[in-house]
């Protein structure tokens, strides 16, 4: 592959993962919710859109017996909607839990969802890959397809960025921020904080679901192993390194993390440790995450003044 093709591929992955980070930033950065089920929302979006747009398998070895041929935009929309519904459903049971316990419950739900995807082959192809997922407008765009898809993803990222930033800066976002700071205060001022948390969860999950759909229609084939908890953790690292609470930070953080992960594609295979590079870069991400939390808790683009306000360093 030429370097230009690789660059487009990496940029598209950055775009899709940026959408995940935008959703997680609404959960964690704006509302203070520890959502560890993000990979599951991503998976729900991917599988929903894939199943709705890809006919069932045929032949003797057919595994998946369910499928349809709806237009891709229907699949994307349904994927985002179903991911949002799953997010709200999980949140209904759990958002009253204290932060770190919410993390464990959401992580468990995510694994449960992955277990279902893995085991229900008639619906999802199970452990094998769900193949032959159609690409939108393939063959009918006047520019290179990779470039077209990148521009499509870029457009969705830009739109989502503007939308979520607008939400965060609105009176709605103000209540979310108040929930993040101290939930009892908005409660005492007449805000139904549980309802606001559900909305936050649903919105962030919806964008993750949309990201899943865009992922599925880009990669042709999806497997349950694309949606491991380590993906959730990677997006967490991106949001924290970028600066929790900043949507631009979420995108920059993702570009940074994906960049570290994908840069090895450009490294020739005859350098020392080349075969270990995939793992070395994950070690680097882990070290970076810890270092940022220690030296720069507000991340690359977070609001230092806000983070320090009220803490020991910030008090005069």
């Amino acid at each position: 592959m030429a370097v230009g093709d690789l660059a487009l591929l990496v940029a598209t992955i950055m775009g899709v993962y940026s959408l995940l980070a935008i959703g997680l930033n609404m959960h964690w950065g704006d509302t203070g919710l520890l959502n560890f089920a993000h990979a599951a929302f991503f998976a729900i979006g991917a599988y929903t859109s894939a199943i709705l747009t890809t006919p069932p398998e045929t032949g003797l070895l057919a595994n998946r017996t369910v499928g349809a041929s709806y237009p891709i935009f229907v699949g994307l929309l349904a994927g985002a909607t179903l991911a949002a519904a799953a997010g709200v459903l999980i949140a209904v049971t759990s958002v009253r839990l204290e932060g770190d316990y919410l993390a464990m419950v959401t992580l468990s739900f995510a694994e449960l969802i992955r277990l279902v995807i893995h085991n229900e082959g008639w619906l999802t192809s199970g452990a094998q890959s769900l193949k032959g997922i159609e690409r939108p407008l393939e063959g009918s765009v006047p520019i290179r397809y990779d470039l077209f898809y990148f521009l499509l993803v870029l457009g969705v990222v830009a739109g989502s960025y503007l939308l979520f930033r607008r939400l965060a800066g609105s009176p709605f976002g103000r209540v979310l921020h108040a929930v993040r700071e101290d939930e009892e205060v908005p409660l005492a001022l007449g805000k139904d904080t549980t309802w606001f948390k559900l909305k936050s969860f649903g919105l962030g999950a919806a964008i993750a679901g949309l990201a899943g759909g865009l992922w599925a229609h880009y990669v042709y084939a999806i497997t349950p192993n694309m949606f491991l908890p380590s993906l959730t953790f990677t997006i967490w690292a991106a949001v924290i390194i970028g600066g929790a609470g900043s949507y631009l930070g979420a995108i920059v953080g993702t570009a940074f993390i994906v960049g570290i992960r994908q840069v090895t594609r450009f490294v020739p295979s005859d350098v020392p440790f080349a075969s270990d590079l995939p793992y070395i870069r994950l070690v680097v991400i882990g070290v970076l995450l810890i270092a940022v939390l220690y030296y720069r808790p507000y991340g690359l683009l977070g609001d230092e003044e806000r983070m320090l306000a009220g803490s020991e360093e910030g008090a005069d």
Binding site: R180, D182, L189, G190, K191, G310
Partner: peptide
Amino acid sequence: SPDERAQRGMIRTFQITRELTGM
């Protein structure tokens, strides 16, 4: 619930101030 009482016009403050530090 507390928010429903607040919406009806009963508002409280806290003994230990609960300012939203990051706002």
